[in-house]
């Protein structure tokens, strides 16, 4: 894949993950940094096949991102998807305007916090269960048939 195409793919990935994590479009500076960090830290070219698949599913839609995020937390906690999301979070928390979103609290006090966290917790379970049924067998299958490394393009 050409450098332009790879960059566009990484940019798209950054935008999609930004929308999912922060409910906003990340700016060009964040995309630049995300791109350079992916290259510098080798987050694109050394990942496993399933790892790569998980990222490519997550960037398709925020609901799919939620399912992949929940799955990755428990079944691939050090995988590429979580690394990429934590990288984006680290960039966003020191960059305007996203740092202001990350520094802000939601209104409503203790009670609303409790309601929200219960709702989000149930949401996580709701997305985790179908992800578990689909992704876990796939992960095991790919491992069994020896597709351990991504052999295609250098970026997922």
């Amino acid at each position: 894949m050409s450098t332009e195409k790879t960059d566009a793919k990484i940019d798209g990935e950054c935008l999609a993950l930004g929308r999912y994590l922060f409910n906003q479009e990340v700016n060009e500076y964040v995309r630049d940094k995300y791109r350079s960090a992916n290259a510098m830290l080798g987050l694109g070219n050394t990942v496993g096949h399933f790892d790569a698949l998980l990222v490519s599913i997550a960037v398709r839609h925020p609901l799919l991102a939620k399912a992949c995020d929940a799955y990755a937390r428990f079944f691939l906690p050090q995988g590429a998807l979580r690394k990429k999301m934590v990288l984006l979070l680290a960039i966003a928390e020191v960059t305007p305007p996203t740092f202001r979103f990350l520094d802000a609290t939601d209104s409503g006090g203790w009670f609303m916090f409790f309601v929200r966290i219960m709702w989000k917790g149930m949401g996580m379970v709701f997305f985790l269960l179908p992800a578990l049924f689909v992704l876990l067998p796939l992960q095991l299958l790919l491992k069994m048939i020896g597709f351990t490394r991504w052999k295609g393009e250098s970026h997922v």
Binding site: D69, R73, M85, L102, F113, I117, G123
Partner: peptide
């Protein structure tokens, strides 16, 4: 302090962990 080292260790998906991090920061 930067929050990503703490948020990444919360045993929930990252989006929910970010919600927790924002509302628990103080």
């Amino acid at each position: 302090a930067l929050m990503h080292p703490i948020i990444k260790d919360i045993p929930l998906d990252l989006k929910t962990s970010i919600f927790l991090g924002r509302n628990l920061h103080a």
